[in-house]
Design a protein around this nucleic acid. Structure first.
Lengths: 132, 132
DNA sequence: GTCTACAGTTAGACATATTCTCAGTGCGTA
DNA sequence: TACGCACTGAGAATATGTCTAACTGTAGAC
């Protein structure tokens, strides 16, 4: 079981206390947090953490392959620790973003589009999350 | 063949000169323009057009059903005169957004997602546009 | 024609998200 | 210890979108 320290090192990221704190939060997040949501949470543990450092750290994690960004929410990027292919559902009332497993949906025709060299794709679904 | 004037009236929009100019441009746009791109273009014809009026006008058109907004491009909304269901392709190099006809792709499984009441969905594809 | 009310525009201020800048800090190495 | 470099913090700067208040244009009433 890899520790956050190991994870950062394996991705060639120097493990500063700030980065560890951000990683501990964001790599376990299921909520597709915005940068400011990350900041709000991680400040509880690192009260001196600057907002610029959060952005710098998140963008570093994206560059190193630990996170992806998703353009699914109006007004801001969200960060996603699940870097494999998957789809997203956006609850239009709450703004919350949910993962939809890749194999839950089948998309056909993408590679046959003659005008486009498709590198990746996903389905963005919008509606309301059901009560469970 | 409806004029822009007719179109605005039919959607219960008072046809001011500014709104006509914006509509002339954006309703014919194939480029999924941002608000600032609309402003830059329409100012050529209406040099006194204010940026706030562009935003107000675009948002009014969205409310009245003449346009939709698309959350496909990082950092900004784009406006789309094609209000029916369709998919989008984003060229990751140029940032340009292209329509993909609804029937070009088949998505199955969306209505079977047990956790979500899916109101609408689209496929977002990313890659490079091919030279034609 | 004049007056009034209201919708719409303008210019700039403001809010938010993100990136940039620069001084300071911490760490590794010689 | 000194030095170099990566990293952080605080605030400035930038881009997008919304708000504010003064002004303008129009339709309708008189």
């Amino acid at each position: 079981m890899a520790t956050t320290l190991d994870t950062l090192r394996r991705h060639h990221i120097a493990p500063t206390p700030q980065r560890l704190a951000v990683a501990d939060y964001v790599l376990a997040a299921r909520t597709h947090p915005t940068a400011d949501e990350v900041w709000a949470q991680v400040r509880k543990r690192c009260p001196t953490l600057s907002r610029a450092t959060v952005y710098n750290t998140l963008n570093l994690f994206v560059r190193k392959g630990l996170l992806t960004t998703q353009v699914v929410k109006e007004g801001t990027l969200v960060f996603d620790p699940h870097v494999g292919a998957h789809h997203h559902f956006v609850d239009v009332r709450t703004g919350k973003v949910y993962d939809v497993p890749w194999e839950a949906l089948t998309v056909s025709g993408a590679q046959a589009l003659r005008d486009f060299d498709v590198r990746d794709y996903q389905v963005i679904l919008r509606g309301h999350k059901r009560r469970t």
